[in-house]
Design a protein around this nucleic acid. Sequence first.
DNA 1: TTAGATAATTGGAACGTTCCAATTTTGTCA
DNA 2: TGACAAAATTGGAACGTTCCAATTATCTAA
Lengths: 349, 349
Amino acid sequence: MGKERVTVIDIAHAAGVSKSTVSLVLQASPLVNEATRAKVNAVIRELGYVYNRGAANLRQSNAKSKIIGIVVNDLTNSFFAELAVGVDMVVQSAGYVQFLSNSGESVDRQREVIASMREHGISGLILSPARGTDAADLKPLVASGIPVVNVVRQVAGAKVSSLVSDNFAGMRDAVRHLAGLGHHRIAFLGGFPDTAVFNERMQGYRDALADMDLAVHDELVVSSAPSRAGGVAAIERALMLRERPTAAVCFNDAVAFGVCDGLRAHRLDPGEDFAVIGFDDVIEAQTAVPALTTVSVDPQGMGRRAAQLLLKQINAGKADAEAIVGSVRLVVRQSCGSATDKRERLSLL
Amino acid sequence: MGKERVTVIDIAHAAGVSKSTVSLVLQASPLVNEATRAKVNAVIRELGYVYNRGAANLRQSNAKSKIIGIVVNDLTNSFFAELAVGVDMVVQSAGYVQFLSNSGESVDRQREVIASMREHGISGLILSPARGTDAADLKPLVASGIPVVNVVRQVAGAKVSSLVSDNFAGMRDAVRHLAGLGHHRIAFLGGFPDTAVFNERMQGYRDALADMDLAVHDELVVSSAPSRAGGVAAIERALMLRERPTAAVCFNDAVAFGVCDGLRAHRLDPGEDFAVIGFDDVIEAQTAVPALTTVSVDPQGMGRRAAQLLLKQINAGKADAEAIVGSVRLVVRQSCGSATDKRERLSLL
DNA sequence: TTAGATAATTGGAACGTTCCAATTTTGTCA
DNA sequence: TGACAAAATTGGAACGTTCCAATTATCTAA
């Protein structure tokens, strides 16, 4: 099959023009005559030419490579998959192409993939940092003038833009809602305590309890892996307490689903016998039974915003870091058995 | 900040050697003296040099670019996310880097991303084709000698390797299992009938029913989107039948979870009042309550195998298409209320 | 010593593109 | 028709690397 690569020179030859003209056509320059353009394009199609972006990049090293990198810390978590999809949407429509990698929560792997991306000449990076990422890891990137946008998690001391959700307010609203429904013993389930996100949400939890004149009971805080399995384990522990909680806010939706599973294993009906609130609003939160009350973060929207922010910085040339805190909204569904909810359900009948 | 790019020549200059020597060092050639290598490496680190893979590729156009592309049809489906993670594992350890894109089930988008990948000089492609992909879409790729491995779905007439799971046997085993437990009315829920995967599974369903001397009732086949929401809708319809089914095999795990949700909404207990079997064995299948009985496909393993197959073809140079059908295994858990299962549960107490 | 082998190093051409300055073609108007 | 402007085209240099053939430095053994 086609062993030899077809180059711009072959095209020029076949079309009876110079390589410069072909180049102009490729860039859709207005300088070239309409008839010539048509002929060149015809030859291009005929010979099956494929543009060599590597060579082009080489020449215009100052310009941008039209690749943006994105690395997430856990692709198997649908939150991040959706985030990536959101990024892809805007990146694509801006004529860029996405280079997606998964660090799997390993800083070493993260370092590797970022290095590899640099070698390929990305013009910007969207990073959901692995746990334990140090500002020094990002230093060389920003030093070489490549815009970076951190999402979901901050990296302390890194001079890059960031887009995180309002963890504090989200959790505060969730707890207030439960307290408003009359719950006194509200557990905080799931998540690793050594992360900034955990601490922000925890702060919101404590703050809301204080607000509502409820005591903070340390045994009601049960940390675990931020996964479905972690949620099962956490509720398991919480139900072994002498004084059981009657409601829980969860570190994220995955934990919340696990909690629902665990409740059922104990013959408790989530939403009826026990109120559960999640965090993230992943896509299944709406269709699960009971539909999950959760703090909506809109991962796709977050991805879109991050991409827009990055593109803005790429186009501006200068990259002055801005820290954006995305607002967040409690979506009340069935899993917390609210009055509002029952009314809604009735009205649907 | 570092405006000027550091090149191999700068390194050569600073280290007092020629650019050729620096190049040799970069390639870890045994030809270069140990002392020189050390010095050059020191300078490289000191000046913050980053390798320009584009330029390298340009020179050694015959050789491989160390990029492999992977495009999936729905990244938000965790099956594909895990597949991608599996691919990443082996691709990474072979020194390649992964270029992941999402076609979102659109052939146009798929065409775009594949074109873009070609321009970037991928040395191989793993493709989970969007619905409606035509053999002609892959033609130019294979014509230019780039190995392609199709996963999950075949593309009729395309002369590329493929790796699909044994849909027929998997579904057949699932139905046999249910029939063996005494179920007579077994529904087939979810999936779009215009796909090859659907038809293979359907064939397994019919075959097993015939095997077990059970009648095929067309109303027990309810298609829907292959998603959680689709599963809810499908069981909803199935429960409206005069003669209800007592068990269901589902197109995939997402549908199965939706079916469980739908059953609960009708106050039916999945695993007790109604048997449910999924397909795929996504990660949540184990931790869900009830744990899902399902046909295990091991998406990560499939990704790994696909990547190995692709690398083999890349290294071999020649790409003779081979079609691999991955074997598949019924994993019995709680959701089908089997006798085995109850025994297991007891033994755990 | 020195011839011969081996180990290290090196300059220049090449990869496929874009940019620049220069040239040729076409168009306009007196 | 000539003079000038505008439009279209063009050759060559450059981007950062690798490869090749050629050169120089170092070692070995008689």
